[in-house]
Amino acid sequence: MNRTINTRGPATAAEYGYDDLRAFMTRMTGDEKHSFAATSTLDVLWVLYDRVLRYDQVHPTWEGRDRFLLSKGHGPMAYYAVLAAKGFFPVDELDRFGSFDSILGYHPDRLLVPGVEISSGSLGHGLGLGVGMALGGRIKDSQSRIVVLMGDGELDEGSNHEAIAIASRFGLDRLAVTVIDNDSAKHGWPGGVASRFAVEQWATVDVDGRDHDAIEGAMATETDGRPLAVVAHVEGRDG
């Protein structure tokens, strides 16, 4: 539930919806090799920012916000489109994507982009950071959720499996991971991506990554004190 909407820029955030996102994404050129990565995440990102996360786009560092970490920093065009649609920065900024003076690079930078919690791009960093943020939240007795978006290909990085293990050992029930499974992992995940989390006692849900109601419902899963992994299946590159 969002506290405010942004009123900066040529229009208010309230004027933009899901149907505007693909047009926004076409305004960002130069990183076409990651278009597939971007379109894979689009629906999950929209549902998170439209229905799940608490944030204040006018005050992006509001202490009570949920933290969203785009660990899979490749192809952030969908992320930027959603942030612009929700008013974190003016939509016109999208046209400067990747240019020298733009705040929007091919990988997001938390020191440049309002609302971006972590700088990412090198795979396998976001979940470790998310575990640290969740532990920090526990010390502060915070009710904020930490939501980390990853890719099934990104799970190849061994650092993720360190973090998957300790998140459950510490019972980080404010931590959720959304894995976009678009069959990018070179050698696949026999038994399914969710099994990699389930074996470490995470609560897991598999959903259609284009079904907004299903994604929203999965993010509301009761976890009985465990971290949550939502595996969002989308069409593969050849799909």
Binding site: H125, L127, G128, L129, V131, G132, M133, G158, A165
Partner: peptide, 17 residues
């Protein structure tokens, strides 16, 4: 535990908080 990548990652997350 013996997870040095996570040791630094966790430290980074704590610092951000």
């Amino acid at each position: 535990g013996i997870r040095e990548q996570s040791q630094i990652g966790v430290a980074g997350g704590l610092a951000l908080e």
